[in-house]
Design a protein around this nucleic acid. Structure first.
Lengths: 352, 352
DNA sequence: ATGAAAGCGCTAACAA
DNA sequence: TTGTTAGCGCTTTCAT
């Protein structure tokens, strides 16, 4: 067993042809005479030759690799994005290079810069402030972002968080809730939109929401935040959480504090992660189409790589998923008066 | 803005030195005179030069990239592996190249072969039969596997599934269960060990388990399998599932069928995924240290890359996590007679 | 401490 | 259809 892999020259020698011929053969970029083709085939076979993609990339300038930077692979929302992106990548003969920045703003930039050099393009999910994204434009590589950036014209995809939040609030209002709390995650770029969506809906009803902030987008942070909300002076009858993970933690802790769920309080989240369904009570949420977001981002990037410059910002439609955690309360309007499905909220600031 | 990035030659020209000097400077492989260093620094700065890692890799033969092939990024068990592996990689200045084979045996091999060419080493989680792993040895790259392979001496890591299963069965027996079902996943390389662990424990008590098989390691498959088990002639009072995901689905469906949990039946799984804790009843499971597995695999690979050939197979210790889904039944032995913590089962076939 | 030159494995004109 | 040749951007002896 050789230590070093055979090169194109070894094949050329073994087959008695030139290296150019071998190159053309492996790239299928030409037809060959029968004897040459046979020799090539057997030489490659017997040597176990495989073309070195690095050498190839150096010349062609393309690696057929896409970099994906995400905040935390453990969050099912991001997992779904990876899944979707990976599927499209594979279909187009690309490989995914993943980097998990672990919610660390400090790591983000150096990691992304390093990654960008080894790939044809990048898909980035970041918590960096909108205006410090400038440097990404200097990567000299196509980039697709999650979340719309108001300052730079970078292709991006997202789900309409304003609408999602509006829908969720509307549902809760229709179910007869009156005391709202919003447990957000201020570091996320979606948080403001969600607050605005909730407030816009509540305003119309003459209601308000008390806003709290979680330390992280995780169940642990949801647990942590629970008692201050549930045992404070303004006990809500409905809590809208920044995401399902926070909601899951909140539910668990609320129970530990002695509350009966969903009787005492309704809880809802965003993302529709796969495990909300298995919680008890099963979690009401808004499906943000995470997997589709990943697919779309990859599609956009591949288009950009092919020179087809696509529309700047693609917005996906959220879908309300009603489960057990948000039951009907006493004093709810008649069910036929404003069914959620018919609610027709105005579009928020994210739409043109 | 230039279309093409500056090369080492541009820097050399700008700084008035040779390319060799620039190379040595960027690699920090030498000391320089003050004036040269200053020129170099400013030239690199003003041109925005970044060394091309592809060209570098072609010569040095190392990419500082590790390939990780997993079966399904959506499964939290694998997510944790990725997390652990990624952390160690980053610490050692490696980047993770991820490929999700989507539980498809057909895709596995070509994907892994393609990936292996672009990386320094591979970590592979596979469902391929033990004896068709031969070709991985022909990758000419260090490989670390999950799960011990009896036929080939490949470095690998795993958790002692036999012991894990034994512990879980022992716990259930101690809690007074008598009618056992094991809902496995036959395609997994761990399944047999788990069956043996359960059976070894039950044998000692003169008990048996009815063995079922799920179609996939997913909640949906758990739901699917539930009615045949719970409504069949041999209704169990304890169901051990191949993993937590299957268990979660099983719980949901059992409830939908009208069973009260955990009163009517106890459910347990393996992996200790983060969401078992938020289910209701909270899921009893065995922590297999998924994240640690990822870390260890990466550590082993990095050792192998450094020439330090490590022990062949590293076995992690499982830990029982008792939660609400496996309560005490009538007729359980006195709690002080055989506390689980003291149970001292014999080691199974996986140990030396 | 610095530079000249020879490639790494491959592709892409251009010739034959 | 096949071969010759000149690099891609960089590292690495080996001189100086």
């Amino acid at each position: 067993m050789k230590k070093t892999s055979p090169t194109i020259r070894d094949v050329a020698a073994a087959a008695g042809v030139s290296v150019a011929t071998v190159s053309k053969y492996t790239n299928g970029s030409q037809r060959f005479s029968a004897p040459v083709e046979a020799k090539l085939k057997s030489a490659i076979e017997s040597l176990g030759y495989r073309s070195n993609p690095l050498a190839r990339s150096m010349i062609t300038g393309e690696t057929r690799t896409i970099g994906l930077a995400i905040l935390d692979i453990r969050n099912p929302h991001f997992t779904n994005i990876v899944k979707g992106a990976n599927r499209i990548a594979l279909q187009n003969d690309y490989t995914l290079l993943l980097v998990d920045t672990e919610e660390s703003q400090a790591r983000e930039r150096p990691l992304i810069e390093a990654l960008a050099q080894r790939v044809d393009g990048m898909i980035v999910s970041s918590r960096m402030p909108d205006d410090s994204v400038q440097w990404m434009l200097e990567l000299h590589k196509p980039v697709v972002l999650f979340g719309r950036n108001p300052n730079f014209p970078i292709p991006s995809v997202g789900t309409d968080s304003y609408l999602a939040a509006y829908m969720l609030a509307r549902h809760l209002v229709n179910q007869g809730h009156r005391q709202f709390a919003y447990l957000g995650f201020g570091q996320s770029r979606w948080n403001d939109e969600r607050i605005r969506g909730v407030q816009a809906c509540l305003d119309e009803q003459g209601l308000t929401a008390t806003v709290y902030d979680a330390a992280a987008p995780s169940p642990q942070a949801g647990e942590r935040a629970c008692s201050a909300i549930m045992l404070g002076p303004q006990r809500p009858d409905a809590v809208i959480c920044y995401n399902d993970l926070i909601a899951l933690g909140f539910i668990k802790e609320a129970r530990a504090l002695g509350f009966a769920l969903p009787q005492d309080v309704s809880i809802a989240g965003f993302d529709n992660v796969p495990y909300g369904e298995y919680a008890s009570p099963a979690l009401t949420t808004v499906d943000l189409q995470s997997e589709r977001m990943g697919e779309l981002a990859m599609l956009k990037l591949i288009d950009a790589l092919a020179g087809k410059s696509d529309s700047e910002y693609s917005l996906l439609e959220p879908r309300l998923v009603v489960r057990e955690s948000t039951p009907r309360r006493a004093g709810a309007p008649h069910s036929d008066s404003t069914p959620e499905g018919r609610a027709n909220p105005p579009r928020g600031g994210t739409s043109r």
